[in-house]
Design a protein around this nucleic acid. Sequence first.
DNA 1: CCTTTTGTTCTGTATATTCTGAACAAAAGG
DNA 2: CCTTTTGTTCAGAATATACAGAACAAAAGG
Lengths: 165, 165
Amino acid sequence: MNEQLIDQFIETWGAMGRAWGVNNSVARIHGLLIITDRAWCIDEIVERLQISKSNVSTSLKELRSWNVTRKIFQPGDRKEYFVCEPNAWEMLFNIMRQRKQREFDPILTGVAATYARAQEDSAGIAVDRLEQMKNMLDTFDRLAKMALASEAQMKGMIEFITGKK
Amino acid sequence: MNEQLIDQFIETWGAMGRAWGVNNSVARIHGLLIITDRAWCIDEIVERLQISKSNVSTSLKELRSWNVTRKIFQPGDRKEYFVCEPNAWEMLFNIMRQRKQREFDPILTGVAATYARAQEDSAGIAVDRLEQMKNMLDTFDRLAKMALASEAQMKGMIEFITGKK
DNA sequence: CCTTTTGTTCTGTATATTCTGAACAAAAGG
DNA sequence: CCTTTTGTTCAGAATATACAGAACAAAAGG
């Protein structure tokens, strides 16, 4: 087993998580599940990453809420084992769907509300900028809806744009 | 002046910042510069947002590092005033360029390095997943380079995809 | 020169978050 | 039933982040 190489990937994935606002333990566990070629139970993760069982338990719960990890059961073993979504694009899609819903949609609603009220009373407000901002968010909303509707569609889109055969 | 409406937008923008890993004060100041129709000096921001001068100073420095805010000088006034990039798309582009450079590129480098080493010694490593991950990141890199090269090109792309006339 | 204005940097405090160990719950085995 | 295994939840400790106020720097005005 190439432990050092695994560590290197886990570290990279952890850095990625930090950059995108994901908890370090959560990202590291995810990295471990991605890079290794097997299912892990909680105690094994505790041992491998040297973090507490409670931390592993809650982190795995969060990973499941993002639909990137799931439980499996081994025959004749009471323990729960965990694996990650094996398809990289599907994984990304699941994360993007969740993030859009949790983080983008409320912002769009908020900006649209401000924009609507600014029509009535615009004193001191840069209405043109607000409108631009709203239009931009609307465009992203439309784009995201299309892209996230089907994996095939998004990949088609991207290949078309980047001109890859 | 519709102070409440301005507050509402600043709050929305702050929430957006939090969701994307931006410091709350930084995001609120940015929100203030976006929504209001004028240039602000440090003391005015201190007064309006009720945060300390040191906080405003460092936050503005960060906003400048993202190329979304710049200093201007008023005739016959020693104070520095601050305005935000007036074009919403240009603002987004500047942020994306910086984030790609600071946060995405190192990840791509890291994963590519792991991938290269995994060719030699792949014991216990899910090489197929690593390859998928690397390919996905490469695709994004290509896509981002194209999109960020010119504002017109990206807007064209988006309009083409979303089918907007 | 000395004072005033303006902005930045530094240091300690307050706040938020992350993480651990312990307590707890649930269920299987004997 | 009682014990063991397994996983979750909770309370507090440890850590990291954000922030304010003070000290400092730079430059203009007199």
